[in-house]
Design a protein around this nucleic acid. Structure first.
Length: 747
DNA sequence: GTTGCGCAGATTTTT
DNA sequence: TCTGCGCAAC
C-alpha cells in the first residue's frame, strides 16, 4: 500500500531502512514523497515507535510540509515524531540539558542582527574603527567557525586551524562568546555547536540521545554544514540508521556554510552505506530536463545523475533578448497577459531573478497590467522596529540577563534615560558583574548605594517604574498567565502604545497595526500550544520567520532564485540572465568553484519550470547609476540550441545606442560543441504603449492631502493595501505615504 | 532626541 | 542611481 505509488528506486529508498543510506534525489524526483513513505513504512510496517525517529530538515517550511503529509497518510500520532529543523531540535536539547553548559533554560536566541549588535559593541570597546574591520567580517568569521563545528574548548582541526589564522579575529570571537554567555544567549550557529559541546563533554547525555533515536533522517542534505554533519553523525553512531537525502546539484548555500563534501565524502565516512539515486523527474517537460541536465553536466564537483522524464517533449525554451531592463519588464508583463488571456491562472506563473533589486521593474510592469502579485521574502515582519521593540520587552521579562534587549528598550519610548546615563549604568554593571537589569533592580532597592553614579531623579524614577513593570509581568509569567496578557500589560504600561498613538503620521498608524498583528500572532500561538509560555513564543518567532499572511490566492509569484528552491510552477520567467548578474560579478571574481555554484543556481531555476520556461536578458541595463552592457550569461551558451528559440524584443522606436544584433552569433556562441546550429530570430514586436493605469494614485495624478495641501504623485509602488506613493507638494517637498493611512483625495 | 548631510557600497539570506 | 549609516548640529 505504502509502496504502491512509488517507482522502483523510490521503493528501494524506502525499503533500505537499516544501515547508512544516501539518497541522491534529482529535482522533481518525488523526494518528499519518498521520505514520507519511508517514515510511514518505519512506523507501520516495522512498528517503530514515533519517539524513536528523528527527521531534520533545514527550513521550517520543509518540516511543516513533511508533518502535514505524514498526518494525512498515517493513523499514528505524528505529534510524537521529531520532524523539525536542525536549529529547533538543538534549541530543544539545549533547553532540556541547559544546566550542563551553565546556561539557564530560558536562554535567548539571538538572530544575525543581534549578533552584529554585540559585535559592534565589542569593536567599539576595543577602539576598532568599523572601516578597518567591519562587523560583517567579524560576524562572518564567527559564523564560519561555528559552521565548521568549532566551539571554545575543542581542539582545532585542520579546517579550523586554517580558518582561524587571524589572531585578532579569534580574540574577538572569544570575547563575543563570553558576552553571549553573560547574556544567557545563544546565536544560531551556537545552537548547533552548543549541542556538539554538550555531547563531547558529557558522553552520558550523548548516549541517551543515541539510544533514543533509532532512525535518523536528514532532508536537504546538500545544505548541511560541517557542524550539522557532525551532529547527525554522532546521533546515529550507535544504531547507524542514518538516511540522508539531497541533491549536490542544488547546493546553493555554500556561502552559508553548506559543505558539499558532506555529500561527496558520505561514502567514506560510512563505508557500509548504500547509495540510491532518484533520477526520474515528474515535474518538467523533456526539453527542460534535458537542457538543464546539459548545463549542470559541466560542473566538476558532483557525483553525477542522469535525469530523465516520461513527460511530453513540451514547448521550446524561449530566450528573449531585450533592449533594456524596461523592455524586459514589458515583455514579461505582456507575456503574462497573454497567458492569462489563454486561461492560465496567475498562481501558476512565477518570475525569478538573481537579486532582489530586479523585482522592481517587474513589479511596475505587473501593476501596469493590473495583475496581483506577491513578492516572496521582502522585509520580514519580525524585523520591523516596533515589533522588535516589543519583543525586547518580552525578552527582558523572560531572561533578565539579556542586556542587549534591555538597551533596546530602556529609552523606548523616551524616558529620559539617554546615552550618558546608559553608559554609566553599563560601566557599573560590568564592574559589579551583573546584567544591566540586575543592576537596575539593585539600584531601585537601595538607591543610596549608587549615589556615585549621580543619576538624575528623573532617570531614577523612570528606571524604577520600568523595573516594577518588568517584575509584575514576570510574576504573571510565574503564575502561568497566557503570554497575551503579559504582552498587553507591557504594551500599555510601558507607554509604548501611547507613544505610537501620539504619532499621527501614517507610519505611526502602520506601526500600531503591526503591533496588533503581533498580538494576533501571540494569540495564535497560544491556541497551538498546550502549555503556552513567553519563552516558547519567543523561540518560535526567532527560529521560524515564515510569515503567516496569505492574501489573495491567485497572484503571480516573484522571488529570487534562491527563494524558488523546492517550489514548482507551470510557467516560469527567469530574468536578468546576463554576465555579471547571473553569474554574479562576485562569483566571476572568485573563480571556478563560485561559478559552479552559480551554475547550480541556474539549474535550480530551470528545473522549477513544469511546462514553459522563458529566459530573458537585456542588452543594456541601468545598474548602479549607469547603463551597463553586460551581454548574455555564459550559461545561455551552455544550453544546446535544439532546446530553445531565441527572439529579440525591442520596445521603443528609438534604436540609437543599441544594435539589435549587438551580440552577433559568432561573438556569442563560441562553444565548439553546438555552435553550428544556433539560430537567431530577429523578431521586433510592435509595441503598443500600455495604458497607464497604476494603483489608485498613479504617478502624475494630482491630489490633495488633508494636511499638506495640493500635490503631484511622482511615483507609486505596491498595490491595494500596500500602495505607497511619493508626492511632491507645492513647496517642492517630497513625502512618501502609505495610501491606506494617508488622508488623500484625488483632484 | 531628531534631522540632515555626506559618503561608501550595492549577491544570495533556509536558521 | 539609490540607500543606509555614522556622525554632527539643532
Amino acid at each position: 500500500m505504502i509502496l504502491d505509488f512509488l517507482n522502483e528506486s523510490q521503493r528501494e529508498a524506502v525499503l533500505k531502512t537499516d544501515g547508512p543510506v544516501m539518497i541522491l534525489a534529482g529535482a522533481g524526483s518525488g523526494k518528499t514523497r519518498t521520505l514520507v513513505a519511508r517514515i510511514q513504512y518505519l512506523l507501520e510496517e516495522k512498528n517503530i515507535s514515533p519517539f524513536q525517529i528523528l527527521a531534520v530538515t533545514f527550513s521550517n517550511k520543509a518540516a511543516r510540509e513533511m508533518r502535514e503529509r505524514l498526518a494525512a497518510n498515517t493513523q499514528i500520532n505524528v505529534g510524537a515524531l521529531q520532524v523539525t529543523t536542525f536549529h529547533a531540535f538543538c534549541a530543544k536539547v539545549l533547553r532540556m540539558e541547559s544546566s550542563y553548559l551553565g546556561l539557564s533554560r530560558n536562554f535567548t536566541i539571538y538572530d544575525d542582527g543581534e549578533s552584529q549588535s554585540i559585535i559592534k559593541a565589542l569593536l567599539a570597546k576595543r577602539g576598532i574603527n568599523q572601516k578597518e574591520l567591519s562587523p560583517y567580517t567579524v560576524a562572518a568569521f564567527i559564523d564560519g567557525l561555528k559552521n565548521l563545528g568549532f566551539y571554545l574548548g575543542l581542539p582545532k582541526n585542520e579546517d579550523v586551524e586554517k580558518f582561524a589564522e587571524d589572531k585578532r579575529l579569534f580574540d574577538i570571537f572569544m570575547e563575543y562568546e563570553a558576552e553571549l554567555h553573560r547574556s544567557n544567549a545563544v546565536d544560531f550557529g551556537g545552537l548547533i555547536t552548543g549541542v556538539l559541546n554538550l555531547f563531547r563533554n558529557f558522553p552520558e547525555v550523548l548516549r541517551k540521545y543515541q539510544d533514543k533515536y533509532k532512525y535518523v533522517l536528514v532532508d536537504e542534505y546538500q545544505d548541511t554544514n560541517r557542524a550539522q554533519f557532525n551532529l547527525v553523525e554522532q546521533l546515529s553512531h550507535h544504531h547507524r540508521n542514518i538516511c540522508v537525502v539531497g541533491d549536490e546539484d542544488q547546493s546553493i548555500y555554500s556561502w552559508r556554510g553548506a559543505d558539499i563534501r558532506n555529500i561527496l565524502d558520505f561514502e567514506e565516512v560510512f563505508p557500509e552505506s548504500n547509495l540510491v539515486k532518484l533520477e526520474q523527474n515528474y515535474r518538467s517537460s523533456k526539453r527542460i530536463i534535458e537542457a538543464a541536465s546539459e548545463v549542470i553536466s559541466r560542473n566538476l564537483a558532483r557525483k553525477g545523475k542522469n535525469m530523465w522524464t516520461d513527460n511530453d517533449e513540451g514547448d521550446e525554451i524561449r530566450i528573449i533578448e531585450c533592449r533594456d531592463d524596461k523592455a524586459e519588464a514589458d515583455y514579461v508583463g505582456q507575456s503574462i497577459r497573454k497567458l492569462a488571456q489563454a486561461g492560465v491562472s496567475l498562481k501558476d506563473i512565477a518570475v525569478f531573478y538573481r537579486n532582489n533589486a530586479h523585482s522592481r521593474t517587474i513589479e511596475d510592469a505587473l501593476r501596469r497590467e493590473k495583475f496581483p502579485y506577491r513578492v516572496v521574502a521582502g522585509i520580514k515582519f519580525y524585523d520591523r522596529k516596533e515589533v522588535k521593540d516589543m519583543i525586547s520587552y518580552m525578552r527582558v521579562v523572560v531572561n533578565k540577563k539579556d542586556s542587549l534587549a534591555l538597551t533596546r528598550i530602556i529609552n523606548t519610548p523616551a524616558r529620559g534615560v539617554g546615552a550618558t546615563s546608559l553608559r554609566k549604568l553599563e560601566d557599573e554593571a560590568v564592574r559589579l558583574q551583573l546584567s544591566l537589569f540586575e543592576l537596575i533592580e539593585k539600584m531601585v532597592e537601595g538607591p543610596s548605594e549608587f549615589k556615585h553614579l549621580s543619576l538624575s531623579g528623573k532617570v531614577q524614577s523612570s528606571l524604577s517604574q520600568l523595573v516594577q513593570l518588568i517584575q509584575e509581568v514576570q510574576a504573571l509569567e510565574a503564575q502561568k498567565q497566557p503570554p497575551s496578557i503579559s504582552y498587553e500589560k507591557l504594551l500599555n504600561e510601558s507607554g509604548y502604545y501611547e507613544f505610537l498613538k501620539a504619532d499621527k503620521s501614517y507610519e505611526g498608524a502602520a506601526r500600531l497595526e503591526n503591533l496588533e498583528e503581533l498580538m494576533s500572532a501571540i494569540k495564535q500561538y497560544e491556541e497551538s500550544d498546550m502549555d503556552p509560555a513567553l519563552v516558547k513564543f519567543l523561540e518560535n518567532i526567532t527560529l521560524d520567520t515564515t510569515s503567516t499572511e496569505d492574501g489573495p490566492q491567485d497572484q503571480v509569484s516573484l522571488m529570487t532564485v534562491h527563494g524558488s528552491k523546492g517550489l514548482e510552477y507551470p510557467y516560469v520567467f527567469l530574468i536578468g540572465v546576463e554576465e555579471n548578474i547571473f553569474p554574479s560579478y562576485k562569483s566571476l571574481e572568485v573563480g571556478p568553484t563560485a561559478i559552479e555554484e552559480e551554475r547550480r543556481l541556474f539549474y535550480v531555476a530551470m528545473t522549477r519550470a513544469m511546462k514553459q520556461l522563458t529566459i530573458t536578458f537585456a542588452q543594456g541595463r541601468m545598474l548602479w547609476g549607469s547603463l551597463k552592457f553586460n551581454g548574455p550569461s555564459q550559461f545561455l551558451q551552455e544550453i544546446p540550441s535544439q532546446y530553445y528559440t531565441w527572439e529579440s524584443y525591442q520596445t521603443s522606436s528609438r534604436k540609437e545606442g543599441f544594435s539589435s544584433s549587438r551580440y552577433s552569433y559568432d561573438e556569442f556562441d563560441q562553444s565548439p560543441s553546438h555552435s553550428e546550429d544556433v539560430y537567431y530570430q530577429d523578431k521586433v514586436y510592435q509595441q503598443k504603449k500600455p495604458a497607464v493605469t497604476l494603483g489608485n494614485y498613479p504617478s502624475g495624478s494630482k491630489i490633495i492631502h488633508a494636511l499638506y495641501g495640493e500635490g503631484l504623485v511622482l511615483a507609486s509602488e505596491g498595490m491595494g493595501q500596500d500602495e505607497k506613493v511619493t508626492i511632491q507638494f507645492r513647496d517642492g517637498i517630497k513625502k512618501k505615504f502609505m495610501v491606506k493611512f494617508a488622508p488623500l483625495q484625488k483632484v
